[in-house]
Design a protein around this nucleic acid. Structure first.
Lengths: 111, 111
DNA sequence: GAACCAACCTTGGTACGACCAACGTATCGT
DNA sequence: ACGATACGTTGGTCGTACCAAGGTTGGTTC
């Protein structure tokens, strides 16, 4: 990620927003396993870069409703591409079938 | 490791010493992939705890020859036990055969 | 409708692994 | 004997991962 001036957290957050739609900071954090305070910092960066927008939720003014901007969507694709590239590089010793198997085993561990 | 007041680096260093015998700071670091400056700090801790001894190598006075103490050997076992316990816990979703397979795949990736 | 509790965001801190640059001293090769 | 090199030390940075306290807003209960 650093290779494209990004962070793992940026990818996680953008991906979560893309997958689940706009949401509050904490709930995005819970989904990604990111601490509240870290979320705060990451969203500061992402808003400064214009990749997400923070607006207080009209339905619950305690909340900041986070939304992805079009630029954020493009950014997500960039990060995604880079991630695939790195992953490919990392796993080049394994065949496609072996990669699948590895993913499967690791997924079971995660669960 | 923190659960037994340890660090991953302590384990790595003690294990490298046990496996390859006494050596200089940098060479241990190279084996474990630990930076010189980090080695310095870790060895400070390990000597304070009495787990390793630093003595300038009589054959090359630029070097500190690091050796494990008996207490260090006991410490290594402690850390090793803890590591096995944690690993077991982490991988409890997998059968023994699956764990072996996972290890195999990951080893290939590392190489 | 006032008081209280809960949710949310912010702020400021710690810890650890990972790395880098610069420096002094000792040693080795030539 | 000298220059290059190895070694250890010092002092920094960065990223991920946490934690605790406090203020604001919202929901609930009496």
């Amino acid at each position: 990620m650093a290779g494209v001036e990004g962070r793992a957290y940026h990818f996680a957050i953008l991906a979560a927003l893309e997958e689940f739609g706009p949401d509050s900071q904490v709930r995005i954090g819970q989904r990604c396993g990111i601490d509240q305070s870290d979320m705060h910092n990451m969203l500061k960066e992402l808003t400064e870069q214009g990749h997400v927008a923070r607006a207080s939720d009209p339905n619950d003014r305690r909340r900041n409703l986070i939304t992805v901007t079009p630029a954020g969507r493009r950014r997500l694709e960039e990060l995604d591409t880079e991630l695939s590239r790195v992953q490919d590089d990392l796993l080049n010793a394994l065949s496609a079938a072996e990669r699948d198997h590895l993913t499967l085993l690791l997924t079971r561990v995660l669960e």
